Amino acid sequence: MSRPTSTRTGFAVAPAPIWRVLWLWLPLLGVAVLLVATHLQEQRTPMDMAITAPFLLALGGVLSWAFFRRRIVLENGELVVTSTFYRRRTAVSSLQLDQARIVDLAEHAQFKPGMKINGFGMPGFQSGHYRLGKRKAFCLVTDASRVLYLPTRDDRVLLLSPEHPRALLDALNAQATR
């Protein structure tokens, strides 16, 4: 008896500038400076420093790890998007590929993620669940100038920033015709 062959194709995510990690580390650095300043004024004990400083380092490490955790994979008829702390599996058959578009969010504000429902975001980077008007959107946006807008049949949207959006859209169309 033959096994079904597994197909797995990965698509590179458009890189986000490394300096965006500063949006994570600068507030943590500010808290560390406040911690040291209050310790020097003898408002904190050495035990406070011993507990808080490693916690801040661990928090910064986890958030930095999450920032770099980004993957787009087309696997066995499903589009699997992994971004920060979130993962979304969407069957290719549930995508409305005839309505898919590659957009620049600066020119098409109607496609820009709105209110964050449950996500990880900073200027120029959105990951997780957002509102797009009245619709729910799952976002992995690292480059707002080339975002793949993928509506689904259940009135949700995927907003993705693959490095080559046309290649991903072509692969999805090829998968859908099989």
Rank of each mutant, 00 (worst) to 15 (best):
S2N: 11
R3A: 14
R3G: 09
T5N: 12
S6C: 06
T7N: 10
T7Y: 06
R8H: 05
R8E: 06
V13E: 00
A14H: 06
P15N: 04
P17N: 10
P17L: 05
V21M: 11
V21H: 07
V21Y: 03
L24M: 05
L24P: 07
W25R: 03
L26N: 04
L28D: 04
G30Q: 02
G30R: 02
V31C: 11
A32E: 14
V33N: 01
L35P: 00
A37T: 09
A37V: 09
T38M: 12
T38N: 12
T38K: 12
H39A: 15
E42T: 13
R44L: 15
R44Q: 14
R44D: 09
T45A: 13
P46S: 02
M47E: 09
D48W: 14
D48V: 06
M49V: 13
A50V: 00
I51M: 11
A53F: 14
P54C: 07
F55T: 12
F55K: 07
L57Y: 01
G61C: 08
G61I: 06
V62N: 08
L63M: 15
W65P: 03
F67I: 13
F68S: 12
R69S: 10
R70N: 15
R71Q: 10
I72S: 02
V73M: 11
L74C: 05
L74T: 05
E75W: 09
E78R: 13
V80M: 05
V81F: 04
S83I: 00
F85S: 08
R87P: 00
T90H: 01
V92A: 04
V92T: 09
S94C: 02
L95W: 01
L97M: 04
L97A: 01
D98L: 13
R101D: 10
R101G: 01
V103G: 07
V103Y: 10
D104M: 13
D104L: 12
D104Q: 05
L105M: 04
H108P: 04
A109G: 06
Q110N: 13
F111Y: 15
K116D: 12
K116F: 03
I117H: 13
N118G: 07
N118Y: 11
F120R: 02
F120C: 00
G124R: 01
G124K: 00
G124C: 01
F125I: 14
S127A: 15
G128F: 03
R131F: 07
G133F: 07
G133D: 04
R135D: 08
R135A: 11
A137D: 03
A137Q: 02
F138N: 02
F138I: 02
T142A: 12
A144S: 11
S145Q: 15
R146E: 14
V147D: 09
L148H: 08
L148Y: 06
Y149V: 15
L150C: 03
D154I: 00
D154R: 05
R156K: 09
L159Q: 00
E163V: 02
H164G: 08
R166W: 05
A167W: 03
D170N: 13
A171I: 09
A171K: 10
A171L: 09
A171N: 06
L172V: 05
N173L: 10
A174G: 05
A174N: 11
Q175Y: 02
R178S: 13
